[in-house]
Design a protein around this nucleic acid. Structure first.
Length: 660
DNA sequence: AACCTTTTAAACATAG
DNA sequence: TCTATGTTTAAAAGGT
């Protein structure tokens, strides 16, 4: 019955939205009870759990503190710290919730280490309270150092697992280079993992150094502890994490292949736990291991929040929320048919801890319509959520409450009593009523979607690029695949959706059955439902946060303003690539902005990225082999993270021009 | 600025 | 009494 149960040992309680987590904050309500039952599955809370919880508190406070630090550092007149050419809130880079989650730290660190860390964090927080203003810089630096120490621990841990092809001492030293610029251990070793073939191997550097001495000097001068270095370090860590995940997937794949071929089936390997490539790998009713709780498939699970304005000012509390700060399901606002999206990205959502870009209502509806009888019990709806989305294998109290809330609130969900109890059905008429007759989005967006010729050519080119690519990384079926196909479909269904029929049209496909609008009208009782506009009609501002919150260098602004607003119609795919004008590097997140027919403004301020953004990202990734999809955006596009050989050095907040 | 939608939280009711 | 289910209210956040 209970699907979630023991999969959550410690969860962040709802009250964490205020940045405070407490053991006693469980609710008495239905949702709270669920959470409480989770916590009580194994009886008492273990010391490790307690520590974990305290650690969350500490981290949360530290994050908030560092957020303030970041804003403070970016304020005029605050220039005590050596700044990289572009000011970066390093705290965001280093303290992003997904960087080192409590779970990860618990894995990385032994309990004594955790305790020590906790004490350190608490001490720092105390210091923060006492000296909010005058000690900002000091505490800030100490936080950085601590986080780097954590990273060292992490590297060592990976090293122990054989996942980092780096000599442990060298790894430590290379990290320490960033931390303690006065140390020159490497001078005595004669070799350095960051030095080879006369070049500095620091990501994106490639500075020529004649000898080790010169290199050390260069290292200390150019890669000292500063915003850039820490951000780059963080990126490197996530590269390693991605590779871990990839390794796990490939291993599991191998396992399955060998099993299939009757070659000595072996026991499941311990490291394949976080991933699953089977569509129904998680039997219902079993607690699913959080796909990426410990080692998130999307270490930047809150990538959108990390790079969005919301996380920078509007959501100071949202970091603690385990499900992320996304409050709007953006893409369901205008053109993503849920059936198509889910069909196309089934695997992605099953395995990646990414919030699906749909409202609860649309998801519930889809679940119900997908069922054989087009009716589901509440528990079956729960199960559908957990089965289909890794994201909903956590924080069950929260989203289950939301599901119940939606079922009750929306008129389109009709409760029908039957012999065994009650099932929920969809009153499609009511559901469709919620849709406005016309698309109310911005004219430019409508234009983008309707005149999709340019993107259409990109579709083809993207597929061609995929086919031609020799890089299996992006194309491997076992990889958490960027949901490109559905994004491509967005274009074509856009028209349909404008006429409010897209989901029905798409329901003829694999996921959703066809249905008559009248078929499921069960006016059992009447609910007062607020008129809703859902998932098809409005522009979104996915990238608005990026461009609005991250000030562009002035020259970038100029260049961007100078960009001509030519149409994409009639261009060849290769020409279309050249329309990729800018790449915003936000720490490790790289969001490709394409030149849309209506110009960058549309893309960055008032609309979701058109399908082409994923498209071009994919092309870019395939061509250059430099990017890994790390974050499924709620619009269906994907944020890519650069690999180390990124030809565009990972200068945080740096904006660079791409001309293929 | 007012209003709307969605999400989240929570209180409360009720049936088994 | 406890739990699951269902209803309702409220607040917050983001959008129109």
């Amino acid at each position: 019955m209970m699907v979630e149960s023991a999969s959550e040992t410690i969860r962040t309680t709802p009250s964490n939205q205020n940045g405070v987590s407490s053991l006693s904050s469980q609710s008495d309500g239905g949702g709270g009870r669920e959470g409480g039952s989770n916590g009580d599955v194994n009886g008492e809370i273990s010391p490790v759990d307690l520590l974990h919880l305290q650690q969350q508190q500490a981290l949360q406070a530290a994050r908030q503190f560092l957020l303030q630090q970041a804003s403070g550092l970016n304020s005029p007149g605050s220039n005590e710290v050596k700044q990289s050419p572009v000011q970066v809130p390093v705290s965001m880079a280093m303290m992003s919730p997904q960087m080192i989650t409590p779970q990860q730290m618990q894995q990385i660190l032994s309990p004594p280490q955790l305790q020590a860390l906790l004490q350190q964090q608490q001490a720092l927080m105390l210091q923060q309270v006492k000296h909010t203003l005058c000690s900002k810089q000091l505490a800030f630096q100490q936080q950085l150092i601590q986080m780097q120490q954590l990273q060292q621990q992490h590297i060592l841990n990976l090293q122990r697992q054989g996942l980092v092809p780096m000599q442990p001492t060298a790894a430590m030293q290379s990290l320490q280079q960033g931390t303690c610029t006065h140390r020159n251990h490497e001078e005595h070793t004669g070799s350095h993992p960051l030095y080879g073939h006369g070049e500095c191997k620091w990501p994106g550097c490639e500075a020529l150094c004649e000898d080790m001495g010169q290199f050390i000097k260069h290292l200390n001068n150019e890669h000292a502890l500063d915003d850039r270095s820490t951000a780059q370090c963080r990126v490197q860590m996530q590269v390693v994490q991605q590779l871990e995940i990839q390794l796990a997937k490939e291993s599991e794949r191998l396992q399955a292949m060998m099993t299939h071929l009757h070659m000595r089936p072996s026991e499941p390997k311990p490291f394949n736990q976080p991933v699953s490539t089977s569509c129904d790998a998680y039997p219902e009713g079993l607690p699913h291991p959080p796909t990426s709780a410990a080692t998130p498939i999307t270490p930047l699970r809150q990538g959108p929040s990390v790079i969005s304005s919301s996380s920078l000012h509007a959501h100071s509390h949202s970091h603690t929320h385990p499900v992320g700060p996304i409050r709007r399901r953006n893409s369901d606002k205008y053109c993503t048919p849920i059936a198509s999206e889910l069909a196309q990205n089934c695997e992605f959502y099953k395995n990646a801890d990414v919030r699906p870009p749909f409202t609860y209502a649309s998801l519930i509806r889809h679940a119900i319509l997908e069922s054989p009888d087009r009716q589901l019990t509440l528990n079956e709806i729960y199960n559908w959520f957990t089965r289909k989305f890794a994201y909903f294998r956590r924080n069950t109290a929260t989203w289950k409450n939301a599901v119940r809330h939606n079922l009750s609130l929306h008129k389109c969900f009709v409760r029908v009593e039957n012999v065994k109890g009650a099932v929920w059905t969809v009153d499609e008429v009511e559901y469709q009523k919620r849709r406005p007759p016309k698309m109310t989005g911005s004219p430019t967006l409508v234009k983008n979607m309707i005149s999709g010729l340019g993107f259409g050519s990109l579709n083809a080119s993207y597929q061609a690029a995929l086919a031609e690519s020799s890089l299996s990384l992006l194309n491997s079926p076992s990889l958490v695949t960027p949901p490109s196909a559905a994004s491509l479909n967005m274009l074509h269904v856009g028209h349909d959706d404008v006429s409010s029929t897209v989901e029905q049209v798409n329901s003829n496909g694999s996921c959703s059955p066809t249905l008559s609008p009248q078929q499921y009208s069960h006016p059992v009782h009447v609910k007062e439902e607020p008129t809703e506009v859902e998932e098809d009609s409005r522009p979104v501002s996915l990238l608005a946060g990026v461009t609005h919150s991250l000030p562009l260098p002035s020259d970038e602004r100029d260049l961007e303003e100078d960009l001509p607003t030519e149409e994409l119609e009639g261009v060849t795919p290769l020409e279309a690539y050249t329309r990729v004008r800018t790449i915003y590097t936000c720490w490790e997140n790289i969001t490709l902005h394409i030149k849309t027919p209506s110009g960058m403004d549309t893309l960055s301020s008032s609309s979701a990225p058109p399908p082409g953004i994923t498209l071009l990202s994919g092309i870019f990734g395939c061509l250059a082999c430099h990017f890994i999809p790390v974050e499924k955006m709620h619009t269906g596009s994907c944020v890519y993270r650069s690999l180390g050989e990124d030809p565009f050095p990972l200068f945080p907040l740096c904006t660079r021009h791409l001309l293929f």
